[in-house]
């Protein structure tokens, strides 16, 4: 479902590569966890995957569609939950969701029923008529998740999705990710919460200083079952070490 071939990116105002020759393949029906320390290149990879940034080299395909050649078709397949919660603060929740829905070609009763369903699920029904600027961090995160789902995407890309969520919503989100993947779709998410990655993901990748240092199922990466993912992560990403 998602393919990255030799993807590299260097920011205009930086010398070092943010992402260096990254190759990844993520299948349908899979929850894929993307791990790495701060500044490792996780968000840059996600931004390239969602069409926000253009890679310097390499190709990215979503469901067989090259995002550089057909950006609009590829983007239409993705539901994106960013990590920064920057939204249009002076819009109401409902207005924002209508805007996003229209951009993805979902309007009318379909949009209304989806908004009602997800708003109810995340207990956001009462909050949606209010301005986004008045939302808490967690509420913005929930709105972001709903906005990513209103067009029923095939690929769900989430950057640090659990940050700021209350325990009920975090649980609900994890359940949704599983259900979404079980329906044949793909979930690609980055997280710092290793426990969650350990419990939810089918496969994981670890990136450090822009380079992929490990990618496999948790069992295969962790050859010794007694070693926790946390200590494995710390070993792999520590200075001078790479697998």
């Amino acid at each position: 479902m998602i393919r990255l071939y030799n993807v590299s990116k260097t920011y205009a105002k930086a010398n070092a590569k943010a992402v260096d020759d990254l190759t990844l393949e993520i299948n349908s029906g899979e929850i894929f966890g993307f791990l790495g320390p701060n500044g490792a290149g996780k968000s840059t990879t996600i931004k390239m995957l969602t069409g926000i940034l253009t890679p310097d080299s390499g190709t990215i395909e979503i469901d067989g569609i090259n995002i550089a050649e057909n950006p609009l078709r590829a983007k239409a397949l993705i539901g994106f939950v960013p990590d920064n919660h920057e939204m249009y603060e002076t819009l109401k929740g409902t207005e924002y969701l209508k805007f996003i829905g229209t951009m993805y070609g979902v309007t009318g009763d379909t949009l209304k029923s989806r908004i009602d369903k997800y708003a109810d699920m995340f207990e956001m029904t009462d909050a949606l008529p209010n301005l986004i600027g008045s939302y808490s961090h967690g509420m913005k995160q929930k709105l972001s998740v709903i906005a990513a789902l209103v067009h029923d995407p095939k690929v769900w890309v989430l950057d640090e999705p659990l940050t700021g969520l209350d325990p009920q919503s975090a649980f609900q989100l994890k359940q949704m990710m599983r259900k979404f993947a079980d329906e044949g779709n793909t979930v690609f998410f980055s997280s710092h919460v290793i426990d969650v990655v350990e419990k939810v993901c089918d496969r994981i990748a670890i990136i450090n200083r822009g380079k992929l240092v490990a990618v496999d199922t948790l069992e295969n990466i962790r050859s010794d079952n007694k070693v926790s993912l946390e200590s494995l992560f710390l070993t792999i990403t520590s200075d001078g070490e790479s697998k």
Binding site: Y88, E89, T90, L91, K92, T94, E95, K98, F99, G101, T102, M103, T107, G108, D109, L111, K112, I115, T125, D126, A127, L128, P129, N130, S134
Partner: peptide, 26 residues
């Protein structure tokens, strides 16, 4: 914060008009 569910309009008004409407509101 207002409380309660809002009846909002989800009629398709086209991409450009929706953009303009959103932009002027924000």
């Amino acid at each position: 914060h207002k409380k309660g569910k809002e009846n909002f309009d989800t009629k398709n008004i086209g991409t450009i008009r929706q953009f303009m409407l959103t932009d002027i509101k924000k």
